[in-house]
């Protein structure tokens, strides 16, 4: 995991605690940044690295590593104004920075896009859609909750096709080897195409090249075995 640089989480909020917890599980190097010293105790008890600085100052941001080893920035404040401002400041320091911004109003989504956020998380939209799905398609939501989100060992993972892989140069519809490991191919990412992700059911049969990415669902163990067998 050393390929991924430092991760900064701005705002010691509930979302930051959740994301931080997940990042810690996976062993990433991250720290939470806030300007309110009163959070120090709480961060200490939870065991999160918290840096108390004035993040509105660009030099402070540079000192934190933006423009150097920081690769991901989360802006997780409760106030959209802070999130937008931080997104702008961080983006101006480093063009290539990956920024994931949290939003609380519909208005802010567009503003964050303009400011240069790569991904925008809207908790209200997420909650709303999930409740809606729960009402209209209870079975589906139960399954997703229990598998992909839940404790059961079914995960969604991406597999990148390498130069040396046995899959390099094959057509998607021809890779029936997935069945052996009980993996389900959801879709692909083709680096030649603009779209980030194409569902397999869209029906494009496509030649796999090095750099293309497959998204599969299955047991982690099986995914690892599969990767090994096909030299991925």
């Amino acid at each position: 995991m050393s390929t991924i640089g430092k991760i900064l989480l701005f705002g010691f909020t509930r979302s930051a605690i959740e994301i931080g917890g997940k990042l810690r599980e996976k062993g990433y190097d991250f720290s939470i940044v806030d300007n309110d010293a009163s959070f120090e105790n709480k961060a200490h008890t939870l065991g999160f690295p918290l840096e108390i600085v004035d993040y509105s100052d660009d030099t402070v941001l540079e000192n934190l590593g933006i423009g150097k080893n920081v690769q991901f920035v989360f802006t997780l404040f409760e106030e959209d104004v802070k999130n937008i401002f931080l997104t702008l400041s961080a983006k101006s320091l480093d063009e290539k920075l990956n920024i994931i911004a949290l939003t609380h109003t519909k208005d802010a989504i567009h503003k964050l896009e303009i400011a240069g956020a790569n991904t925008i998380l809207d908790p209200y939209q997420i909650s709303g859609k999930r409740i809606y799905k729960l009402i209209t398609q209870p079975e589906v939501m139960n399954i997703i909750d229990a598998t992909v989100f839940g404790l059961h060992d079914i995960n969604m993972e991406q597999i990148t096709i390498t130069e040396t892989s046995l899959l390099n140069g094959k057509m998607i519809y021809d890779i029936n080897t997935l069945e052996r490991y009980n993996l389900l191919l959801i879709g692909i990412h083709d680096k030649e195409l603009k779209e980030k992700f194409i569902f397999i059911i869209e029906g494009h049969n496509h030649k796999l090249d090095a750099g293309d990415i497959l998204v599969v669902i299955g047991q982690s163990e099986n995914i690892q075995k599969y990767k090994k067998e096909f030299n991925l």
């Binding site: 995991m1 991924i4 991760i7 509930r14 979302s15 605690i17 959740e18 994301i19 917890g21 997940k22 990042l23 599980e25 996976k26 990433y28 991901f72 989360f74 990956n98 994931i100 949290l102 991904t119 998380l121 908790p123 209200y124 997420i126 909650s127 999930r130 989100f149 969604m156």
Partner: peptide
């Protein structure tokens, strides 16, 4: 929603 955001946020990184 925080739980989902936590999961999605960490998923986004790797």
């Amino acid at each position: 929603a925080d739980e989902t955001i936590g999961l999605m946020g960490s998923q986004y990184i790797d």
